[in-house]
Simulated scan of single mutants.
Amino acid sequence: MPEDRGDEFTPHTCVGQPFADIGRTGRMAILGFGEPVSWEAPSGAGSLTGSRYALHVSCPFRVTQGTRIVVGSEDLRRAGGASFDRGAAALDGYLARVAPLVEAVRVAPTGDLRIDIQHGIAVEVFPATPSRAEAWRLLERFGTHVAFPA
């Protein structure tokens, strides 16, 4: 994974951005970073709003605060994702109140991704298979993206 080099888009682009929200589509978690942006729905059904950057995670991950796991990938498998939805809703409420900023991002050659956020929050993503299937993707809405494996 490349280090941040000026205008090049890397996971380090998120440093200084607010951790804005967390949700899911099926068993893929979506974590939002940055200010809200709007766009027209492809179906023509009106406009949508989301964070400027989105991290799509299809491999094991967890969001922690201090020594507590707030929500993680295993929650997506329990009760049809209801456990994840409850944890995500609680986290979204907290994020809306405190708007914590990303402080640091680390990416290992194995694709492990750690995002350190104010107030002791951390996002840890850890691909756990040698498969070439995409484990995670960070995208800028209507812009570029970076994925692992590339």
Rank of each mutant, 00 (worst) to 15 (best):
29 A>D: 02
33 F>I: 03
136 W>D: 01
63 V>R: 04
41 A>I: 10
25 T>K: 14
135 A>R: 00
27 R>H: 11
65 Q>E: 15
147 A>W: 02
150 A>G: 15
18 P>L: 02
133 A>D: 09
81 G>A: 03
149 P>K: 07
98 V>H: 12
58 S>L: 13
93 G>A: 15
103 E>D: 11
6 G>P: 13
142 F>W: 08
142 F>Q: 07
150 A>Q: 14
50 G>E: 10
34 G>E: 02
136 W>C: 01
149 P>V: 07
84 F>Q: 05
132 R>Q: 08
20 A>I: 02
111 G>R: 09
83 S>L: 14
81 G>H: 05
111 G>A: 13
5 R>P: 06
95 L>C: 06
143 G>W: 10
109 P>L: 09
28 M>H: 03
96 A>N: 09
98 V>I: 13
118 Q>N: 13
16 G>P: 13
2 P>W: 12
68 R>L: 02
25 T>C: 11
55 L>D: 00
145 H>Q: 13
13 T>R: 15
74 E>M: 05
94 Y>W: 10
50 G>F: 01
70 V>R: 05
9 F>W: 15
129 T>H: 07
79 A>H: 11
138 L>G: 00
64 T>D: 06
74 E>T: 14
12 H>V: 00
140 E>N: 09
24 R>Y: 00
73 S>T: 04
61 F>Q: 05
147 A>L: 10
140 E>L: 09
82 A>E: 14
29 A>F: 03
120 G>P: 12
67 T>H: 04
27 R>T: 14
32 G>C: 03
99 A>Q: 11
63 V>L: 15
138 L>W: 00
1 M>D: 04
95 L>T: 06
150 A>P: 15
15 V>K: 00
150 A>K: 14
129 T>M: 07
101 L>N: 09
145 H>N: 06
25 T>Y: 08
41 A>N: 15
108 A>D: 10
76 L>F: 06
114 R>V: 14
107 V>H: 02
113 L>K: 03
39 W>P: 00
4 D>E: 08
101 L>A: 14
147 A>H: 12
17 Q>H: 05
122 A>S: 15
106 R>N: 08
55 L>R: 01
14 C>T: 08
43 S>K: 12
133 A>N: 07
47 S>R: 15
145 H>C: 08
93 G>M: 13
123 V>F: 02
30 I>C: 04
75 D>M: 10
49 T>H: 01
34 G>P: 08
88 A>P: 09
76 L>G: 08
82 A>Q: 08
100 P>V: 10
113 L>A: 02
12 H>N: 05
36 P>T: 02
145 H>P: 01
8 E>M: 12
2 P>K: 11
18 P>C: 04
75 D>Q: 13
106 R>W: 10
38 S>H: 12
118 Q>D: 15
28 M>D: 08
79 A>E: 08
83 S>H: 15
13 T>D: 14
24 R>A: 00
33 F>T: 02
77 R>H: 12
57 V>I: 08
88 A>F: 02
26 G>Q: 07
43 S>L: 10
149 P>Y: 06
132 R>Y: 06
68 R>E: 03
31 L>R: 02
114 R>C: 08
141 R>Y: 12
101 L>V: 09
2 P>I: 06
103 E>Y: 06
91 L>Y: 10
26 G>S: 13
58 S>R: 15
16 G>K: 09
17 Q>D: 05
132 R>T: 07
64 T>W: 04
